[in-house]
Amino acid sequence: MPSSPATGAIPVLTGSYTTDSGGDGPGIAALLLDPATGRLAYDDEVKPLAVSGASFLAAHPSLDVVYSTNETETGTVSAVARVGDGTLSPLGDPASSGGANPCHLTVHPSGEWLLTANYGSDIAPGTVAVHRLGADGHLLEPTDLVVHQGSGPVTGRQEGSHAHQVLLDPAGRFVLATDLGADAVLTYRLDTVTGTLEQAAVNRMRTGSGPRHLAFAPGGELVLSADELSSTVTCHRYDATDGTLTALSSAPATTAKDIVNQPGGIVASPCGRFVWVTNRGADTIAAFRLVGTALEPLGEVPAGGTWPRGLALVDGHLLVANQHSGTLATLRVLQDGTLDRPHQPISAPSVVCALAL
């Protein structure tokens, strides 16, 4: 393995598909990012942890605990503690995710609740689950399970509901759950005493768009969506009083022609002026400037591999998880929102997400 970057490096965890989930990755691996150069290296002091189908990772807000989806038909979620020098250790046994193929999760700011989006399968609908968390971060009992309903016009992808992301708004008042299969974003209130969800709104998205992931712009007034099935990026007005979304503008996610392209991860800049999205198919990262509520394309750069899925903004760099090529790439963000071409990618078999700590 390569030597570690200089002192001051940022710890990064990656999640990957494992042999029992259709990949050849290790599960969760530990790396270090040198923020001065964008260079990545494996942390030689921390052994990978075999977590089945670790397709998305989320950190506890106050504890050295990370949660992972275990994306299989018999879906589970895992809690992982970081101890000592960053060593990864299971924190209790995996718990049922409440559905098939869990693909996204998030921790409530209180640290008391874990919310999970289960994509479902050809025969099982998408669901959103809530688990209570213990004082040390371990998984306790499930407290609610919401079953999504609906479908869309895209054959092979929208015969049923497919929950793809669960996201808290900046005020922590509402939970937004995207449903790729039903062309909808469902808004819930989380009862922080009982851990139950109450539906507050159903936001209908453009027919056949397949909303995958959302990103809030700073301030919480605008929400950007990566629309997987229509290969678009859409800017929405968010009403924090009732959790509703109103589409304002949209732009193609890529300029590439004659290919099937599926946007994946989406990130908004801390200044609120820029948005970046991964393009699976075009194998690029596209940059956009927000001009008011309009999306102005700033161009695309190679993703540093094939099938870029997860995207994370870390100290002025975008980390790109290229699933099919098994590479993790670093792209430096320039002042005008455009991107440098990738730093030398590092090998990361079946990588699908990255989480900076």
Rank of each mutant, 00 (worst) to 15 (best):
L190Q: 01
D34C: 10
T74P: 03
T293F: 03
M205I: 14
L290Q: 12
S151V: 12
G172L: 11
V154I: 15
H108R: 09
G195T: 01
L63G: 00
A200T: 06
L13R: 00
W276K: 06
R212M: 03
G326P: 15
S350W: 08
A58T: 10
G137V: 12
V83K: 00
V260F: 11
H104Y: 14
G98T: 03
L339E: 07
G208R: 10
L105D: 03
V77K: 09
L139S: 00
Y188H: 15
D283G: 11
S78V: 07
M205K: 01
Q158Y: 08
P35V: 02
V260A: 13
W276F: 09
Q335F: 06
E71R: 06
L328A: 02
F216G: 01
P252R: 10
A41Q: 10
P94T: 13
A356W: 04
D93H: 06
G243L: 00
T106E: 11
G337K: 13
A81N: 08
F216Q: 02
A163R: 06
S96H: 12
T72F: 04
R332F: 07
H138R: 11
Y17A: 02
G160K: 09
S230E: 07
A81F: 14
L57F: 08
L197I: 05
P302L: 12
L339Q: 11
E73D: 13
V166K: 13
R309T: 09
R289P: 00
I259Y: 01
A287N: 05
D85N: 08
A163P: 06
G272Q: 08
G219E: 10
G326E: 08
L115W: 00
S97M: 02
D136F: 06
V66D: 03
R132M: 08
V166F: 02
T72L: 12
R341C: 07
L133P: 01
A81Y: 13
G243S: 02
G299M: 02
G299H: 08
G120E: 02
T244Q: 06
L222E: 05
L105C: 07
V128R: 03
R237I: 06
